[in-house]
């Protein structure tokens, strides 16, 4: 009697203990169920419909709502949406190009500036470090709006700066480059799949300003963990400065830089605020990326069914990118252990 009672209460206590983690998970999962998982399922359902503004009131029970199967997906990928200047593969290519070129500029620049700052005996290092960190401190929406004004055709600082420089070479004409509105691509062959308008270059310049300091920060951390004796040994062996850079510095900061580059790639790939604040995807959707186009589908075009299908596509693009980048990061992890 006694023992069975005891074991029963022990059993109860064990059950209670086994249930405990679920209690801790409950608040988050109830909330996520309502505001994340249910909307995700809802999104998939309406991606098979022609949901439009007229269906807003009654939604899925709207008598006018038609189930159209995979038509939205087909129209997005193959063309046929009632949207001007939209071509799925052009935007996807541009989006990848935009992310890759940004990283390709930010990472080397970030490393070189970190190496420069790490030079032994350089004066005023601390001052420079304090200045170079400033772009990280300013919110990107502010950065994008300020650069948008800088690239203004008539009153912008960039054209004024170029006018000043042109003045040194004897040209009195003010420079009037239509940075954000000119549609003709300056280098037509660079991306055969679509126009790389001047707006792209303007945004590359602005995002360069925004992007390299983070890479410098990461590279500085990695540089400072390299033992000094390695350089001494290398210079005793007669390695020149550039040999030391390629054979000591680069391999040793690679494990830190590759995850940073992957992070930068994902960030640039989905850089909604910056793109939307600077070019709004224009001119003629030439600088549109997937997320800005998805946003336009809901906010301005109000094609909810198509927008839902587009978001599902974005999800799978993001998934593929994650699987690839995850592989790259893991590969470098084992590299750093080896």
């Amino acid at each position: 009697m006694e023992t069975s009672k005891k074991s029963a209460s022990l059993h109860k206590a064990n059950l209670k203990r086994a249930a405990l983690p679920y209690y801790y998970l409950l608040p988050a999962f109830i909330l996520m169920g309502v505001i994340t998982f249910y909307p995700l399922i809802y999104q998939v359902i309406i991606s098979f419909t022609d949901f439009q503004t007229k269906d807003l009131l009654k939604q899925l029970s709207s008598p006018e709502l038609k189930y159209v199967g995979i038509q939205n997906y087909v129209e997005i990928v193959m063309g046929g949406l009632p949207v001007q200047n939209f071509e799925f593969f052009r935007i996807l290519t541009y989006n990848l190009w935009w992310a890759v070129t940004n990283v390709m500029v930010h990472v080397p620049a970030g490393i070189l500036i970190a190496v420069l700052l790490n030079t032994q005996g350089l004066w005023m290092k601390r001052l420079y470090r304090a200045i170079y960190i400033l772009p990280i401190v300013i919110p990107p929406i502010v950065v994008a709006t300020v650069w948008q004004n800088i690239f203004d055709e008539q009153y912008g600082a960039m054209n004024q700066l170029l006018s000043v420089i042109a003045g040194w070479f004897g040209s009195a004409d003010p420079v009037h480059i239509r940075w954000l509105n000119e549609y003709t691509p300056p280098i037509p062959w660079l991306l055969p799949n679509g126009p790389l308008t001047l707006a792209y270059y303007a945004m590359m310049i602005a995002n360069f300003w925004l992007g390299w300091p983070f890479m410098t920060m990461v590279a500085t951390g990695a540089l400072q963990s390299i033992p000094k004796d390695l350089y001494e040994a290398a210079s005793i062996d007669g390695a020149s400065g550039s040999q030391q850079f390629w054979n000591v510095t680069v391999p040793l900061i690679r494990p830190a830089m590759i995850p940073a580059a992957v992070y930068g790639f994902t960030l640039s790939f989905n850089l909604f605020n910056f793109v939307y604040f600077m070019s709004r995807g224009g001119p003629a959707r030439s600088t549109e990326i997937l997320v800005t186009f998805a946003y336009d589908l809901v906010r301005n075009l109000r094609l909810f069914g198509v927008a839902a299908a587009f978001s599902v596509i974005i999800f799978f693009v993001a998934l593929i990118i994650f699987l690839i980048t995850n592989r790259i990061t893991h590969a470098t992890e084992s590299y750093s252990e080896a």
Partner: peptide
């Protein structure tokens, strides 16, 4: 999913 991806639903 980028945050915009949940905007529609």
């Amino acid at each position: 999913m980028p945050a915009i991806g949940l905007a529609t639903p």
